[in-house]
Design a protein around this nucleic acid. Sequence first.
DNA 1: TCATTAAATTGTT
DNA 2: AACAATTTAATGA
Length: 242
Amino acid sequence: MQELLVSSPIPLRARARVPEAAELAGIGWLANLQDEDRARAIADLQVVTVNPGELLCRVGKPATYWFGVIDGLLKMSNDTAMGVPITFTGVPPGGWFGEGTVIKREVYRYNIQALRTSLVAGISVETFHWLLDRSIPFNRFVMQQLNERLGQFIGAREIDRMNDPDARVARSLAALFHPVLYPGVGTLLRITQQELGYLVGLSRQRVNEALHSLQTAGTIGIEYGGLRVLDLEQLRHHGKAG
DNA sequence: TCATTAAATTGTT
DNA sequence: AACAATTTAATGA
């Protein structure tokens, strides 16, 4: 299995550019804002293409941007004090993260790494706070975001303790298909079996086996370079009693 | 637009 | 981990 290398030829900041109209359309919360607020948000928005293996956030770095995935797939990993990565979460299109640390003006508490070439948008801490101070729709969005993510992290701990690989794959997949946190995903998630292996912590072969088991059960559909959800509730509850 | 080739992804052992 | 089979993307006429 090839290791995901960390490369940084040109700093992300230097590669950032102004987003195109089609890219703005993929940012759901913009539509909630009043015209004036939206204009300011768009004026501050930047996008950057992140290459596979590149780090977007590093633990300990001051939070300067609030990020969202427009296209691609990122991996959020927390390290323990001993440096052993413990929790993994994928961030598919439509997902925004970092609000917790941005609100408190602290340092990032996790690493964010691109699993594949991804297009990531960001607004500055200043604009984030400006919106937080005056826009109720923006506050609603952030609050909902925090609430849903809390539920996900609780679920992630449960997944970590499960020893049935099929259930782990199912529950991790269900998390990626979360309609509120990741509205950009829809019913077809673009992810390879290799990438899913990285997220769940299983070999590609085992992931392949688990996916076929889920497909036979009618829970998902396997497609080239992606997975389609046929029964989200069954995915969510896989491995639960009752 | 179509045919050919290379690259990526999946299926299997 | 290795390999074959399949699907997509890239290339050029």
